[in-house]
């Protein structure tokens, strides 16, 4: 390592940071080192970064249009030099559709995470900290949501709201917050009786302040891990809804919908369904590996050693 790199490393790992920023960066750096020590997790991160890059640069990367195909000459072509992953029944280049589809996958995943995680966090921490009636009501509500199979509940919501990718996102978000609430509540229950929370109570802090500023801070890392691990499931549910025709509507190149339409040719033209299936597999795997790595890097229990 260069001399400059060495001093920067010392600065980050300093046992006596001189500023708020240095303390925070040092903490991030330690977590990062622990994360990168895990090769598979790093591979997961690379997959997710690749997904982001592909989604961002889709128009530049895609060799053909994702929605317009040549019905006359290029229907159901096998993978080859021109169409790397072949074409579908409408003559559209599958690779291009996959590349554009990554945008929709990201869209679904990010929106679901943004909607479901905060709801779960809030419900769980409030229920856990308040206890009593608040806890009972909030948790029974969570139980009700948990009692339905996820896909069925999402189906019901989509059926009520009408098909479309936005409604699919909403439906998935509504069905995926209960596990987060449970995790946050369980975590809150162990934190709530600790001396450091008592100490803040003794400062005269209001319950809202304690939940928002002290308890949530500790629940967030396990929630991030859980959400990351759930990403694969979210992608699959979105794909499932797409497959059933209740998610993304044609001609949107959503991966689940692509499998659905490729189903008819699965025996003779396997690549039509196989390519999006492989994409889902790789991205799900990426999120799972990333989540495992994050668990090691962020776990509060291992983090204080």
């Amino acid at each position: 390592m260069s001399e400059l790199g060495q001093t920067r490393r010392d600065w980050l790992l300093s046992e006596r940071p001189a500023s708020r920023t240095q303390a925070r960066l040092g903490r991030v750096y330690v977590a990062w080192r622990r994360f990168t020590a895990n090769r598979l997790a790093f591979l997961g991160l690379l997959i997710i970064i690749a997904l982001l890059v592909v989604a961002a640069l889709a128009p530049m990367l895609a060799p053909f249009s994702p929605v317009v195909g040549d019905l006359k000459t290029s229907r159901l072509l096998p993978p080859g030099a021109e169409h790397w992953l072949g074409t579908d029944d409408l003559g559209r280049d599958i690779l291009s559709r996959l590349i554009y589809g990554s945008r929709w996958t990201l869209y679904v995943v990010v929106l679901v995470a943004i909607i479901a995680a905060p709801i779960g966090l809030l419900v769980g921490t409030v229920a856990g900290y308040a206890g009593g009636w608040t806890d009972a009501v909030l948790m029974r509500l969570t139980d009700i949501f948990l009692a339905f199979p996820k896909l069925i509940l999402a189906l019901a919501f989509v059926a009520a709201l009408g098909p479309g990718i936005e409604n699919a996102v909403l439906a998935i978000a509504i069905t995926s917050w209960p596990p987060y609430a449970r995790i946050a509540r369980a975590e809150t229950l162990t934190i709530r009786n600790s001396d450091y929370i008592k100490a803040v109570q003794l400062m005269g802090a209001s319950p809202i302040r304690i939940v928002l500023r002290h308890i949530m801070q500790l629940c967030i890392s396990s929630l991030i891990i859980r959400v990351t691990l759930d990403m694969a499931g979210i992608i699959l549910t979105a794909a499932g809804l797409g497959f059933l025709g209740l998610g993304a509507q044609p001609p949107l190149p959503e991966w689940g919908a692509m499998i659905a339409s490729g189903r008819r040719f699965i025996l003779d033209q396997w690549w039509v369904a196989g390519a999006p299936g492989g994409a889902i597999l790789i991205v799900s795997l990426g999120f799972n590996l990333l989540g495992d790595g994050l668990r090691d890097a962020l776990d509060p229990r291992s983090g204080e050693k």
């Binding site: 001396d195 450091y196 008592k198 100490a199 801070q217 509060p300």
Partner: peptide, 13 residues
């Protein structure tokens, strides 16, 4: 408090 390991928030400076 008695236990200095338990009375300080683990994620705060």
């Amino acid at each position: 408090f008695q236990d200095p390991y338990g009375s300080l928030h683990p994620r705060q400076t």
